[in-house]
């Protein structure tokens, strides 16, 4: 662990604080922070992060419906989890084709009289990031559903029975009983997905849009890749990677601090 992470961090920080063999302190980080392309990439990551509540809400709803034994729940459970099992590259290529201007999505819209909604989903800068987010939600949902379903199945049934005996309806039962008991697993999924949306979307972007059109879908990872391997500026790539790492550790730390404070407040 120490070698893998310790040496990696050492090399990263060394690269980020040196240029042409000389130490430059935090200058490289300063340049990265002020680079408009880096800022746009971070902004796009943050926009993707906004999809997190949507992913959680949908995953939770589907998990509850499956838990309650909706018709065909076995089929739905498998169908929802399959996208998560598919390699991201396959998903990217598939949606790259579906979302072209004359692709299946627009053809379907036209066939049901909704042709005016047709878009160049990945070629229009106004839509490209949203389309990308939609694909990410579609794939990431499966993991959340299975995670939530597993937790639901482990909850004591008598609590739900008691709520029903007390006259609680569907919405009240889940709001007052299910959600509080699911809080820890929701928090866990939140952190996992936040990290995914900040630092694990490279394959989606690279396969589907390569950061374009323009810089519309550029994310921090593709920025790092471009600066390291296209622009041949490893120090800039390393600086961006350090900033990304700090951001991710920050998210994880905030989550842990939040949990700690919450636990203390409840104990008090």
């Amino acid at each position: 662990m120490v070698f893998v992470y310790g040496y990696g961090i050492y090399r990263l920080v060394e690269e980020a604080t040196h240029r042409d063999g000389s130490s430059v302190g935090l200058d490289n980080l300063h340049i990265a922070l002020n680079d408009p392309f880096f800022r746009q990439a971070v902004g796009n990551n943050l926009r993707l992060l906004l999809t997190l509540p949507i992913i959680i809400a949908i995953a939770l709803l589907i998990a509850i419906l499956l838990y309650e034994g909706m018709t065909g729940w076995r089929f739905h459970r498998v169908a929802i989890f399959i996208p998560y099992m598919l390699p991201v590259v396959v998903v990217g290529v598939l949606f790259g084709q579906l979302l072209t201007l004359h692709g299946a999505v627009n053809q379907a819209l036209q066939s049901v009289g909704l042709g005016r909604l047709a878009q160049d989903w990945l070629g229009n800068p106004d839509w490209a990031l949203r389309s990308l987010a939609g694909v990410i939600i579609w794939r990431e949902l499966g993991f959340g559903v299975i995670l939530f379903l597993a937790r639901l199945l482990s909850l004591p049934q008598n609590v739900f029975d008691a709520a029903r005996v007390d006259g609680a309806g569907w919405f009240r039962t889940h709001r007052s009983v299910t959600l509080p008991m699911m809080r820890s697993i929701i928090g866990f999924y939140f952190v996992i997905e936040a990290i995914t949306l900040m630092s694990w979307v490279f394959s989606y972007v690279f396969v589907m849009t390569q950061g374009g059109p323009g810089q519309a879908t550029q994310v921090t990872e593709t920025y790092i890749y471009e600066e390291a391997f296209t622009a041949n500026l490893p120090w800039l790539a390393a600086s961006a990677a350090v900033l990304l790492l700090v951001g991710i550790v920050g998210i994880a730390a905030m989550f842990l601090a939040g949990r700690f404070i919450w636990t203390r407040m409840r104990a008090a």
Partner: peptide, 9 residues
């Protein structure tokens, strides 16, 4: 992340 990013170095 570090392991991947360190590859830049």
């Amino acid at each position: 992340l570090v392991a991947a990013a360190a590859g830049c170095g």
